[in-house]
Amino acid sequence: MKPAGYLDQRNPCIKLLAVVLAALSLTFIFDPVTPAVLFVITLAAGRFLGGLSLRSQIKPLWIFVIAGVAILLANIFFNKENATSPAILSLGAVKVTGPALWAAGTLWLRLMSFALFSLVFVKTTEPQHLILSLIHQLHLNYRVAYGTLVGYRMLPTLQSDYQTIRAAHRVRGVREAQGLLHIWSRFRRYAVPLLTGAVRRAGRVALAMDARAFGALPGRTYRERIVVRRSDWVFLAAVVAALAVVVAGLWMIGITRFTIE
């Protein structure tokens, strides 16, 4: 396990609020540079304040790189500015225009930033602390919160069950149909044994929790109280300030744009 860094010690709800604020402000910005700058800043924060290696931050994002290609293609073919703008590059009948690249870059970098914000949040947050923080700061019903935690616990089991069931079916001589058309038949084939197992396990956990007086009294105590310290507010203020400085700074030198035009 990695050592707890500055980000790990921040209150989970405050950290979540910071992520939401950053993501929200990006939705009003329509240029590729601003999200790119925020991406780099987050990367650095993850590295130096969260103890996350660059590799561990970038590698999980590969799926969004693929999404980027899709966004680019969609803009090359369907961006409505294409008809009126001059081509930067022409490949036969296909012309690549400036607005298409601009829009694709904006969307893609915004997506990458959202993904990275979430990734850094998840990797620096202990799930149990998030749950406790939701109970203590946002006054989420503790029954709901613990239910969520138990569900989270079951995910790895479901995954390994899925692998086992696939192997077991292959041994029976089931030839797995490939391709998109067969997603439904695959889903149906594995859903029944997976769900049977999950429902049974969920029932058992529920009994085990009831047996230990879960929900028997109106309230409960907590061994560990997640609190909001002054340093958490300082962190939030710093995030807001950084956002403001970046956006305002880039806007003043004419980079940040708040409209599509």
Partner: peptide
């Protein structure tokens, strides 16, 4: 089990008893 660490798991029942 309904938590992630040993100490939280042992605490769970006692917390429920306030």
């Amino acid at each position: 089990f309904c938590t992630l660490t040993v100490e939280d798991e042992i605490a769970f029942g006692l917390e429920n008893l306030c």
